[in-house]
Simulated scan of single mutants.
Amino acid sequence: MNHIIHDSVKLGENVQIGYFSVVGENVVLGDNVSIGNNVTIHEGTIIDAGVTISDNCVIGRWPKPAKASTVKVDADLAPLSIGEGTTIGANTVLYRGSTIGKEVMVGDLASIREKCTIGDRAVVGRGVAVENQVKIGAKTKIQTNSYITAYTTIEEEVFIAPTVTTTNDNFMGRTKERFQFVKGATIKRGARVGGASVLLPGVTIEEESFIAAGALVNRDTEKAKVYIGVPARVLRDVPDREKLDQQDK
């Protein structure tokens, strides 16, 4: 036997499972699911039809934070759910308690923590880290090595360029006071955030805002404005031809 499948697993038609993979108790695999080599799928995970999971992935694992961590594990975390037609790249780690939509692309070496929601047709690029309790809207693209901190909300059709950093704690781990203020950014529909930008805790990036590469955003932006610099300041308006509502015309 070149893989281990628990007797309780529900297998759809035409499921392919590679060498040395382990599929745990009460996992559901839909029709035409493809599982690579050396993949571990933890208890209860639900994988819809047409999903591809590449080699060396860990799917649906329980979180186990450090003793000093402020994150508390919910004993009632729902199983991880992966929507129809989604592709999971090699060496990714996906945690229990999250929901990944249809036709999502999760790149190699990415990580998505617990209690996250990823909308349909979103892209989570290579090496992206998505921390716990993050919401990512449909058709949003997050590119290589970006860091999406806990308690961040990203709406639909947002573009996040490579190595963007979001933050959520102005106290950087000191004083109990920080717990009531911890909050990531809110990035609204159609916003674009350039490479290596930094978003400080709790800022709102308004619809159609354009954040230039390397900017540091320390306050809420205005809708459809271009921001540059450290700290970020308004440069000009976003041209009408670049807005989402003009892209299908």
Rank of each mutant, 00 (worst) to 15 (best):
N2Y: 12
D7Q: 12
D7V: 01
V9H: 08
K10F: 08
E13A: 10
E13Y: 08
N14F: 06
Q16W: 07
F20Q: 13
F20T: 05
S21G: 11
V22C: 05
V22M: 08
V23T: 11
V27F: 05
V33D: 09
V33Q: 03
T40C: 14
T40N: 14
I41G: 05
I41K: 02
G44Y: 08
I47V: 07
A49Y: 06
T52P: 00
S54G: 08
S54E: 15
N56T: 02
V58T: 05
I59P: 03
R61K: 11
W62M: 15
P63Y: 00
P63A: 04
K67P: 01
A68T: 14
S69K: 03
T70F: 11
V71C: 04
D74S: 11
A75Q: 14
D76F: 12
L77G: 00
I82T: 02
G83A: 04
E84L: 02
E84N: 11
G85T: 01
T87P: 00
T92G: 10
V93G: 00
L94R: 02
Y95F: 09
G97S: 03
T99Q: 05
I100D: 03
M105H: 12
M105L: 15
G107E: 06
D108W: 00
A110Q: 06
K115L: 10
K115W: 05
C116H: 03
C116Y: 13
T117A: 14
I118F: 07
G119Y: 03
R121D: 05
A122I: 06
G125F: 01
R126N: 14
V130E: 01
V130D: 05
V130H: 06
N132S: 14
V134Q: 03
V134D: 02
K135M: 11
I136P: 04
K139S: 11
Q143W: 12
T144K: 00
N145A: 13
N145Y: 11
S146L: 06
Y151W: 13
T152A: 11
T152R: 09
T153C: 04
E157W: 02
E157R: 14
E157I: 00
V158S: 01
F159I: 12
P162R: 01
P162M: 05
T163D: 14
V164H: 04
V164A: 02
T165V: 15
T166L: 09
T166N: 06
D169W: 06
D169G: 09
N170S: 14
M172Q: 13
M172V: 12
M172K: 13
G173Q: 04
E177G: 08
R178L: 07
R178G: 12
Q180I: 12
Q180W: 00
F181A: 10
F181C: 06
F181T: 11
A185Q: 04
A185W: 04
A185N: 04
T186I: 07
I187V: 13
G190D: 00
A191W: 03
V193W: 09
G195N: 01
S197G: 09
V198L: 15
G202A: 08
V203Y: 00
V203W: 00
V203F: 01
V203I: 05
I205Y: 03
S209H: 01
F210R: 08
I211M: 03
A212S: 15
A215V: 10
D220N: 15
D220H: 11
T221G: 07
E222C: 08
A224D: 09
V226D: 01
V226R: 03
I228W: 09
V230D: 05
A232V: 09
A232R: 05
D237E: 15
P239C: 07
D240E: 15
D240V: 06
K243G: 07
D248S: 12
